[in-house]
Computed example of a mutant assay.
Amino acid sequence: MRIETYPEGFLILEISGQIVGFINCGCAYNVEMSDEEFKELIGHDPNAPHVVIMSVVVDPEHQGKGYSKALLAEFEKRMRGRGKAAIHLMCKEHHVQFYEKFGYDYQQPSDSDHGGMIWHEMSMTL
């Protein structure tokens, strides 16, 4: 298992040379989770103190093997190493407990209706 940062803003998990998962993100000085422009990385500044996770993805064939845990742990470690202040994310309701297990705190239901779905905001202070 190998986890690499490529390109900036992507953490990629490879198993036997095959990409099986990734986390993509952006950084901001002020986090407004319902900001649709930021989802297109408008306003992204790699030097900003707040990291916003856009996606955590593991190929369905490789789910249930602890790869999300490995990705999230490595992501947190790297963000701490870069001196970031916090990590923010939005998730569907059924993922709230999943992220709580990794140390994220539930903040609130989001004003975002991205994709016509209901989202929940979570964050982790580093």
Rank of each mutant, 00 (worst) to 15 (best):
A85M: 13
E121C: 11
G66L: 11
C91N: 03
V57L: 14
Y29C: 06
E14H: 12
M90P: 08
E32W: 04
G81S: 05
V56H: 01
G103I: 08
G66D: 09
E100W: 11
H62D: 09
G66H: 06
N47I: 04
V51F: 01
R2P: 10
E8F: 14
M117N: 11
V52Q: 02
L13F: 13
S123Q: 07
T125G: 04
V58P: 10
M90D: 04
A73R: 05
K101Q: 12
Q107Y: 13
H120W: 02
I3W: 09
E14D: 08
V20P: 11
C25H: 10
R80L: 09
F22S: 08
I12H: 01
F22H: 10
K65C: 14
F102G: 02
P60L: 02
M1W: 11
D35L: 07
F38S: 00
H114Y: 15
H120R: 03
G81R: 01
E74P: 06
V52E: 00
S123E: 08
S16G: 06
H50K: 12
I15L: 15
H62K: 10
M124C: 12
V58W: 01
M90K: 10
K92L: 14
D35P: 07
D35F: 15
H62I: 04
Y99R: 02
V57G: 03
G116S: 07
E36Y: 06
F38I: 02
E100A: 15
A85K: 11
W119Q: 07
K92M: 13
I19P: 11
C27E: 06
S68R: 01
M79P: 02
Y104P: 08
G83W: 03
N24G: 01
I42C: 13
R82A: 06
E76H: 05
S34P: 09
V58G: 05
Q18F: 10
E37K: 14
M122D: 03
V57E: 14
P7S: 03
L72H: 02
A85P: 08
E37W: 09
L41H: 08
F38A: 02
I53H: 05
Y106F: 15
D59S: 14
I118A: 13
P49M: 10
K65F: 15
L41T: 04
K84Q: 00
G83L: 08
S123W: 14
S16R: 12
M124H: 05
S123L: 11
E93R: 08
Q97G: 10
S68G: 15
V96S: 01
S123V: 04
I53G: 03
I12A: 04
R82I: 02
R82W: 03
D59M: 12
G43Y: 12
M124Y: 07
M79K: 03
A48I: 04
G115F: 06
G66F: 15
P46S: 02
I87E: 05
G9M: 10
I15M: 12
H50I: 07
I19M: 14
L72M: 14
K92H: 11
F10G: 01
M1E: 08
Q97K: 11
K69Q: 10
D105Q: 15
Y67M: 13
L13E: 05
H120Y: 15
V57K: 07
K84C: 02
E32Q: 12
M33S: 05
E74G: 00
R2C: 06
T125E: 12
N30S: 14
L13V: 03
A48F: 10
E61R: 12
E93W: 06
